[in-house]
């Protein structure tokens, strides 16, 4: 009787974490959908089949890299160059991954490992802004459902884009390209309002990234350099109070 009640409460708190994860992932879903549609349209135009362009979203799940690959396919670039460029562009996830798993010290490796495969710029930043869930029971369910919400939107949107082709008016799909940047801004501002010094970290990263790109560094490495340098400035800027 008692164990039955206990089981029920476990199940309900699991469900609760899943619901909260979906809610937290909803803005990503909204941001991904137009971008994924655009990717699907462009990939279709570059000569990829619907199966291929959807499979790429299923297996790669990295927006910027997929756009890059589609552009290179359309330009007739070779396989090795494309894969190398994707590696460089996506290496930032290694830095983000270190930050992400460092917050999940109490979580078992078998729970952490699948979560890391769902890391994108967006799922990473949203996840790390929901800090306290990492320490709550069934925290892995929260992050998993957040990431699966984003993933479903990315894969579904890609497929739809491939099927719909040019049905969406160009002016609307062009306008929707700003969605992800607006989401990054919408994620950053509340943290800056809470602690103004966070702006200094973001601006340091932004300037280093900009300068590196101006000096001709590849975009992928420039983002990695900016992120590392901005984070480094945080060692002094944040002090102790942000540690948790």
């Amino acid at each position: 009787m008692e164990t039955h009640a206990l089981k029920n409460s476990h199940a309900s708190s699991r469900m609760h974490m899943v619901q909260r994860g979906i809610t937290a992932g909803f803005p990503i879903m909204l941001g991904y959908l137009p971008v994924a549609l655009t990717y699907g349209v462009l990939a279709g135009q570059s000569g990829m089949t619907n199966l291929e362009l959807t499979l790429m979203s299923v297996l790669v799940f990295a927006g910027a890299a997929q756009f890059l690959a589609v552009g290179m396919v359309a330009a007739g670039t070779g396989f090795v160059e494309i894969v190398t460029a994707v590696f460089v562009l996506n290496f930032r996830h290694f830095v983000m991954g270190l930050s992400f798993v460092n917050r999940l010290k109490t979580m078992a490796l078998r729970a952490k490992l699948p979560l890391t495969l769902g890391l994108t710029d967006e799922t990473f930043t949203v996840s790390t802004l929901y800090k306290k869930e990492a320490a709550e029971p069934y925290g892995a369910y929260f992050y998993a459902s957040l990431m699966l919400t984003a993933y479903a939107s990315w894969v579904g949107g890609s497929f739809l884009g491939g099927v719909l082709g040019d049905v969406i008016p160009a002016r609307l799909s062009d306008s929707m390209g700003v969605a992800l940047y607006a989401m990054f801004i919408g994620l950053l501002i509340p943290s800056v309002k809470r602690n103004g010094r966070i702006a200094m970290i973001a601006v340091t990263a932004l300037l280093i990234n900009y300068l590196c790109q101006r000096m001709g560094m590849n975009q992928g490495w420039a983002i990695v350099a900016g992120t590392l340098a901005g984070g480094l400035s945080g060692i002094w800027i944040l002090g102790e109070e942000e540690e948790s």
Binding site: T125, T128, Y181, L188, S191, I223
Partner: peptide
């Protein structure tokens, strides 16, 4: 640890601009 905790904010900055 402090470095890694600041990474999300740094990443946001680098992702927003100049993109």
């Amino acid at each position: 640890d402090r470095w890694l905790n600041a990474i999300p904010y740094a990443a946001l900055g680098a992702l927003i601009f100049p993109g």
